[in-house]
Design a protein around this nucleic acid. Structure first.
Lengths: 169, 169
DNA sequence: CTGATTGCAAACACTTTGCAGCAGA
DNA sequence: TCTGCTGCAAAGTGTTTGCAATCAG
């Protein structure tokens, strides 16, 4: 069995002055280990590899893509383990699942990153990520109205991009 | 083959004074027929039955539930036809697909109704429908920023309901 | 040591599709 | 008549699961 990838375990701590930056860069690996320990689960090389590949992802990604990435990094893990680990990463609050269609699910790293919402062109399939403070405020207002504690949200806007419109014209 | 259900074809027009009400109650059946005709598709008894069962739905529903409803109304249609018809109903702008999880899709009637967004308790599975004008405004703002024409959106908030919180306490 | 984990392949659940016969317009 | 439609069963597809061997703590 391969050893734990160095890039992950030795991930450097940077930007330690501002608290936000600290949070943003504190090794997510530690978060995961803490979570696993608390759940009496084990930190295996496979889980480390998958976390490593996950943290290299920008924006949305699919389980299948992650499997390939791990392979590209020279490791071997089964699809099953990737799926199982993605579930743990979700429970640990490191990634979140995003539902765009009924074929498959997508994932996004949330630990130490700003989360996104999506503007999707139904014609071209373009996806724009955006970030809205107003939306977060609105979310919290709505939760408060119903006595809910907000955990996360998904906001997908479907529309026609300028490109799609001009193509039709 | 069974005849077209009466309840659908003779759906009464009510509330014709305010324009909104008119729009809300104008027989969706006519909308569907117009759509089908425009696409050179046929208005079959099966499609009428499925539309009928669909319009009786309140809030979210699943394809499987619709199959059962049609059967409960005393008709028989295959699952395949229900799926095929749901696609046409979407294209006709009568229902929209909602993505909550990766197991299956959910649907909601939108024609002549106010659309909803959802507040979901991750612990109990409770679903609260809500409606926010602010959200719609925000959606349009974001689209305008990126030059998009808004078509629809989905806003799901995941959180803990008061019930779930007290259960854990 | 002992219970958790892994890979494999089979199982799953929802959805789509190919096809032969049937039926709107 | 001429397409399009239906039901059926088979195929698809992303994801989950049972199991025996293996490993982390």
């Amino acid at each position: 069995m391969a050893s734990v990838p160095q890039v992950l375990l030795n991930r450097p701590k940077v930007g330690t002055n501002a608290r936000q930056q600290m949070d943003a860069y504190e090794p997510v690996c530690a978060v995961f280990r803490r979570y696993l320990h608390g759940e009496k689960l084990k930190f295996t090389p496979e889980r480390a590899m998958i976390l490593d590949a996950t943290l290299r992802k920008e924006g949305l990604f699919e389980a299948e893509g992650l499997v390939n990435d791990v392979k590209a990094l020279g490791h071997r893990v089964s699809r099953a383990t990737v799926y199982r680990t993605l579930n743990h990463l979700q429970d640990a609050g490191i990634v979140k699942q995003v539902f765009f269609d009924n074929r498959q699910s997508y994932f996004e790293v949330i630990a130490g990153r700003t989360t996104h919402d999506y503007l999707i062109c139904v014609d071209t399939g373009e996806v724009i990520e955006f970030n809205s403070e107003k939306l977060k405020k609105l979310r919290d207002e709505i939760c408060a109205e119903h006595g809910y504690d907000p955990l996360s949200h998904q906001f997908h806007i479907f529309g026609l991009s300028p490109k799609a419109r001009s193509r039709k014209a």
